[in-house]
Design a protein around this nucleic acid. Structure first.
Lengths: 121, 121
DNA sequence: TTGACATAATACCTTTTGGTACTGTAATTT
DNA sequence: AAATTACAGTACCAAAAGGTATTATGTCAA
């Protein structure tokens, strides 16, 4: 079982919570990169990028492979899959609710009335 | 298009980055609740819960409806859907990679070997 | 060795989180 | 109507975590 209890998701959600790190994921989705190459796409120092990469690695969102004296960062599917699995629990939910909402809107349009609820004191 | 550019995702990812807030989402997936009811499931004060609910609302993960002197919190599908959409970009990715892994495993099973896949990546 | 790249430790600042206390508002009671 | 009770929201404060830059140290190749 590679999937995680929702407790194990914390490092992954934490990693995804930063926009720079999400950008890095998009970068790595197109091409594996060394830390130096990743740096070229951002205005921050290498040290900052390195910390982001470490956090991404802790979230199982990337893996790093040593290649000579360079360390190549790859996108790792497992972290993303774990989050996807966690969210799939809610799929039933928003599928159902959005469907109902849309039905209600369409019914309102047909009926033509959306007046606010009256309030007496 | 109601969905957001990935910039708008920040409040949602931020909201999901806290384990208490994820717990609240699971709670609300089973039943709409007032803030007081949510509090009963946690050890923190109502003020703290209220802040979590505000952040969840900013992430379009819940909606709040006033009902007399109570405010009922509901699960909101839209934020979850936005994250789901963002992640679907990577689907091709880990579907491809995990798919390859799974094929390898199945091939091993058919061949009569259940031994772990070679370290691969 | 030097030069180039990677990692580690530290410091500074911002954001986040949770607490207490106070305020606001709606329903209830007298 | 006025006072009381119940539920919710806001303001301020302290503690903790997060992000970045700087500086120093380590590693590898020429």
């Amino acid at each position: 079982m590679d999937t995680a209890n929702h407790n194990d998701l914390q490092p992954t959600f934490r990693a995804l919570a930063d926009p720079t790190r999400r950008e890095i994921l998009l970068l790595l989705s197109q091409q594996d990169m060394s830390i130096g190459e990743v740096c070229e796409h951002f205005e921050v120092t290498r040290a900052a990028v390195k910390k982001h990469l470490t956090i991404l690695e802790e979230g199982s969102l990337i893996t790093v492979r040593t290649h000579g004296r360079e360390r190549i960062n790859h996108l790792a599917p497992s972290g993303l899959k774990q989050v996807s699995d966690w969210m799939s629990y809610f799929d039933q939910f928003w599928t159902e609710r959005l469907g109902r909402l849309q039905q209600a809107i369409e019914r309102n349009n047909v009926a033509g009335k959306s007046k606010k609820n009256t309030k007496g004191s």
